[in-house]
Design a protein around this nucleic acid. Structure first.
Lengths: 206, 206
DNA sequence: ACGCTCACGGAACACCCCGTCCGTTTCGCT
DNA sequence: AGCGAAACGGACGGGGTGTTCCGTGAGCGT
């Protein structure tokens, strides 16, 4: 909204603090946390939050930009991996871990709600297309089941979102185990039985 | 709350209609649907809902009793299956389908929220203990991975809960595919890699 | 058919949320 | 130090939710 230059120092400080608090709050408590609570934790009034971020959606966008970057980095790394199957596995593991640590981002990523998504749709689709590349390449080596499609990765992300636990650590641990299970499911194996048809999910790319 | 005998006919009818509407509403729209909306769909005023079900939690309990019974039936069937592995697979498939069709029940089942759970805890624990039996028996045949534990089934249920889709049908289809993937993950296979440690989940039994 | 009683439902209460207004405070330049 | 502009935050409006009150109306035994 405002460029970082030519602002009063208190305004810049407040903006940074609000953003940090919002990131932590969305990650820990989800998207439903009231703005007032974020304001309280930031030591400012609600109006100050709204001055820096005109709507709650704007705050979402600002708060999740970082996670979206991390997401891109994960895909970079996975695509850089020489072994496509290993790249695929790395993607699953790191993507699910990232989403496990940030409930808000996870929800925003796998949702089609216009309020959350408008600013993200483009970047998310770009990410999904690279996931698609990873899927294709891993399939070519024969290590990934031939009938796995992009939607299955999205399915894994949404499913990962359903995992709840007492603490951040327990959640991450549960998500790690889940990721390992999904990788087992995705791996080609002699005794594999055919999968039921793919369903239309809220988010995908063609 | 009230026994079904010695009640006025309109009261009994209303109660039944409210319960049916509530079941459908919780299944389709989740637990967050307002009581007023359930009242509206039932053609009664909000106060009438509260007369029959003193709190929203009481309505939860009444609405989910049926699904809990279905859950018990599924476990009966699975335990009655002569082939333990087939019984285990049937349980996964049908349990996940049941939960996919009833978001509210799914949330209530895998949650530890006292408000929702108080009346369910005992029956749920009984169910979980039978799942444990199914896991043990399927492991003995060698078809189920030896390192799979009850928590993994709970993990699958929670993950299943994260799956969202446009329609009831799409949701069910997605859940079916997910169930098939989880079964692949659970099945013992030569190339299996060890799983990360089990995490403490909100619900389990020892 | 009557009337008592039980059940109904609209309105109201208490609370919480997003987003805004405006009087007050604070910054930063001279 | 003084002053203008920018930023702050408490209070407010509008909307929504769980739950309750109470005057009204419908069921049912006589």
């Amino acid at each position: 909204m405002t460029s970082e230059a030519s602002q009063r120092s208190d305004a810049r400080d407040n903006r940074a603090r609000i953003l940090a608090v919002a990131r932590a709050a969305f990650a820990t408590d989800g998207l439903d946390i009231p703005i007032r609570e974020i304001a309280r934790r930031s030591g400012v009034g609600p109006a100050t939050v709204y001055r820096h971020f005109p709507t709650k959606q704007a705050l979402f966008a600002a708060a999740f930009a970082e996670s979206m970057d991390t997401c891109a980095t994960i895909l970079d790394d996975a695509l850089a991996e020489p072994d496509p199957w290993r790249g695929f596995c790395l993607m699953i593991e790191r993507l699910l871990a990232l989403h496990a640590l940030d409930r808000g981002f996870s929800r925003a990523f796998t949702s089609r709600l216009p309020e959350v998504v408008d600013h993200f749709a483009a970047e998310r689709d770009r990410s999904l297309r690279r996931v698609l590349d990873l899927v294709r390449r891993a399939k070519e080596t024969g290590e990934l089941r031939a009938d796995v499609v992009l939607e299955d990765v999205v399915l894994a992300l949404m499913a990962n979102e359903g995992i709840r636990a007492e603490s951040r650590e327990a959640r991450l641990a549960a998500s790690r185990r889940f990721a390992a299970l999904m990788i087992q499911a995705f791996r080609a194996q002699p005794r594999a039985t055919p999968l039921p048809p793919v369903a239309r999910l809220p988010v995908s790319v063609r």
